[in-house]
Structures are given as C-alpha cells and as structure tokens.
Design a protein around this nucleic acid. Structure first.
Lengths: 262, 262
DNA sequence: CGTAAGTTTGACTTACATCAAGTTTTGTGG
DNA sequence: CCACAAAACTTGATGTAAGTCAAACTTACG
C-alpha cells in the first residue's frame, strides 16, 4: 500500500525569492495525470478505489505552478476551488482583527487547501509557496456534482473534511497544553510522519520555513525556536544544519512530547 | 431570519451532580420535531430550505436525555452518528498521549458533535453534559444516503463540516497568538455571539463550566481565569457573580481582543 | 562580492504558573 | 430546614518559562 514516488525535488526553475504579486502568477496546464501522482492517496483519503466509474483528473480543471514566495490564494478571495499540492510546500497565514499574523498551517505534497472556505464562501488564509510548487485546482462545484453521482466519492469528500477537523484539533491540543520544547518536538515528529506516509524519507528533510515562521506556527518566538534547535542538537536528538534536519533519536523526542508537564 | 426560540431553560428533573457511568445513560424517545426546534438553523447551516423533499427529523434516529455530568460519547468509541444539541450544553475533552486533558470545546444548543470522527471512525473526545441536556442522534449512514439523493442536503453537509474547520482555526489562532486577557475576552465575545445567533440573550448568560474548565479550554490555569474575571469586573467590562455573567462593555472587550500584543 | 535576510546567543524582563491560605458556594443527609 | 463536607473560587506571595532587546555571526542572492 506504500507509495513509491520518486523523491524528485522540484525540477523547476530557480526561485527568485521575491514576493510576487497576484498578476505575476505563473499559470499553465501541465500534463501529468492523477494516477501518476504519488500524492493521490493523500489528496483523496481512504486508499485506491475499487470501482472505476470516476477519475480524479476529471476534477482537476488546471494545474498551477508557483515560484517560491508567490501566492496561491488570499484571505478573503472568493471560494471556488480546493487546491491539492502536487509538488512542493506552502504556508497558510491567517490574520487576527488586530493585524497580527499566524502561520495556521505548513502544507506539503498531497495536502488539500481551502476546506475552511466552503462555509464562508471566502478563503480565510493567504497561502504562499515556500519553494517552487505545483498545485491542482479542483473546482468545488465539480466535486459536488461527482459526489451526487457517486456514493464512494461522496464518502471520500466527507473523510477529507473530517480529517482536516481532526488534524486541527490536534494542533489546538498542542497549542493549549504543551510547553515550547514539546511543541517543537511534536511538530518535527508530525512532519516526519507526514513525509513517511507519502513515501519520503522520514528522518531527513529540509524545513522550508524560517525560524520565525515555525515559531509563529507553534505560538513561539523565533529566538525560542532557535534555542530549542540548538538544545536538541546538543542533546543529540536531532542534527540541525540551518534548515536541513535529521532526526537522530525519535524515541527521545516522543518521550519529550508525552512527558506530562506535571 | 432571526429565530425566536422561547428561552426555556431545561425543564428537566434536577441534576444529581454525580458523574454517571455509561450504563446509567437515560435514553428515551422524545416527541418534538425539528421544525419546532429553535436550533434547526444551526444544526443544519444555510437557513431554511426551498425544497420540501426531505425532512431533518427523518434523520434523527432517537433523542437522548442526559443529566449533568453524564457522558454522551467517549474518546475511542466507534463512530456511527453525529449528535446535535437540542437543549443544554456540554464539554468535549481530549486527552494527550501523556494523559493530560484539555477542553477542546464548549458546546451549546444547536451545535453538532462528532464531525472529527468521520475520518478515523472513532470519536476523539469524551463529551459530558454540563447541565441536563437533550441530544438528537443522527446516524451518519442516513446522512450519506440522503446526501446521495439530494444535492441541497449534500451541500449542507459540506457546509457543516467546513464550518467546523473554520471554527477550529479561529480557536487555533486564539491559542497561538493571544495573551491571557485577550483569550478570555475573545471567549466571552464568541459565546455571546453564539447565544445571540440562537436568539438568546447575548449580554447575560450562565457559564456552565468551572474556572478550571474555562482555563483548560483557553490554555490557562484556573487562578489566571479567576484573576481575569475579577479584573474585568473591577474595570467595569463585565459583571461576574459566580457563574452568572453580564457583559457591560463589549466595545472595550473587543478592543482588548483587537489590541496588538506589540 | 556586498547587502539583506535569517540565525544564534547572551542578558534581562515579564506574563503566567505554582504554591498556599482563606472564603464562598453547592449538594447531601440528618 | 439546617449542618456539614466537598468542591469551587478568590487572592496574595513567589517562581520560572518564554518573551524582549541587543549584538554578532552566517547564509542566500542579485
């Protein structure tokens, strides 16, 4: 059942690192089918289908390629489609009434974006590519049409939304109960697990976020994140080299997370 | 479009205050229809329907009455149904691997429970009644069957799940970025808004949770919650009398929430 | 190769937690 | 109804994890 995607890291033109405005969005149709896409199982939960009556790629109206720093959607944009990450990664940023920003999510290959917008009919986060990335655009209207015709697909849609609810609840739990070191450890383990589930190396990966962004995601300041990385490194839990990361002692990390705050 | 439910506070037998075990669950069919239920619009989002081809009460397999302290579902229970709160309120408690508990939600009339379980097929929170309450049991299989037959209902189901995602994201934002006083102010304003939307008084209500439970929900300790209530009281923002609460200066509360942490 | 962005580390501050009484409220049983 | 115990709440004194401020160092990019 494991997926053996070739771990090809974005054979796309070099990032410019400049923050692009919307009109610079690079939009183009690209060839690949869903069957060939390693992230299939994640953008549609519950594994491969038995029936053959529908095909995921019929749902994908287009694919969008973004360079690092370019924006996929903005908070407040009218909702029309969900987006699946085909390759690459991105962050979603939400803004409080007071103008404060928080990284609500760090998304990688196979994640689905935009589910929060079905209800309000507008996206509530601004999603920015953290490296050159490719996204599948899935018009929600098409999904609903297909769901009406096909019970299996309808169920998968519900699974997808429910999975998101469960995931956010775990983040809530983390923010509400854990101390700084536990948060970082939990974040790293979760990330490793997500990479593992997608067939990538689960003990060695590149963080695509800055210390500040990681901090924002975990409710911490960048200095705290930096100090924690240093400490984990000293203690032999991880090997940190800038944004390159190698998990050395997952068991210890897990114990850290599980340790009661007494 | 406002709903004018008679604000009848649970004409049920007096609570005993003892924590009941599962086998004591008071389960009985009760008469009321969905049309007569003020919380209709909340358990099914997007207002009244145009068509008349389906009826919500067909979905409700039974109604469950619980006394204060009794348990509706336990974390790990097999998922079969969503639950709508007809009257009363409850808390959902999640447990970390380390055994720490957090109040993941404080739910009132019209809220829907169990959406996180569709994916994992087990509930991940233990839901306990905070006062004598009544719940509608909605077998999820029935919902999927109806959704297959009826596009309007299918859309409402998606709305319902999406609304939950958006709501949790707001809580995440709160836990990740706000300071203690802002969290409490945001909690009170959110609660007031939910009461208002359901046709209840939005400036005067009874908290059904202890200081400790409120603290757990907001990622704070009970002493901090208590001190904050005292301070808000002194500053004339609210009137606190044990668990009875009256919002006096919502504008000030709102400014508190919106104030940047600089 | 130089500038800007990102990171590390140290010294100091602070918001909230913890510990500890004492008070009030709630619920039960006489 | 009152009495009593347990639970819930308040308030003060003190501790500490993480934030803030600041400076030096490293890496990325044009």
């Amino acid at each position: 059942m494991a997926i053996h995607a070739t771990q090809q890291v974005a054979a796309l033109p070099e990032a410019r690192g400049t923050y692009a405005t919307a009109h610079l969005r690079v939009v183009e149709r690209s060839k690949g089918t869903c069957a060939a896409c390693g992230s299939l199982a994640f953008c549609m939960p519950a594994g491969p289908r038995e029936d053959d009556t529908w095909h995921l790629e019929e749902l994908v109206s287009q694919r969008i390629r973004l360079r690092k720093g370019e924006v996929l959607m903005r908070s407040g944009d009218r909702f029309r489609s969900l987006y699946a990450i085909r390759t690459g990664s991105c962050k979603s940023v939400v803004t409080t009434p007071s103008g404060q920003q928080q990284i609500a999510g760090y998304h990688i290959t196979g994640d689905i974006l935009g589910t929060e917008a079905i209800f309000a009919n507008t996206y509530d986060a601004t999603v920015t590519a953290l490296e050159d990335s490719e996204f599948c655009v899935i018009p929600f209207e098409r999904m609903e049409t297909l769901a009406r015709q096909n019970g299996d697909f309808q169920h998968r849609l519900a699974l997808l939304l429910s999975r998101e609810i469960a995931r956010e609840r775990r983040v809530m739990l983390m923010l509400g109960t854990m101390r700084a070191e536990q948060r970082l450890a939990a974040f790293l383990l979760d990330l490793a697990e997500r990479y593992r589930a997608r067939g990538y190396s689960s003990c060695e990966f590149v963080l695509r976020m800055t210390r500040e962004e990681i901090g924002s995601h975990l409710g911490l300041k960048l200095e705290t994140v930096s100090r924690l990385f240093s400490r984990f490194h000293q203690e032999g839990l991880v090997l940190v080299q800038g944004r390159e990361l190698k998990l050395l002692d997952r068991e210890a990390l897990r114990q850290l997370v599980d340790a009661s705050v007494q």
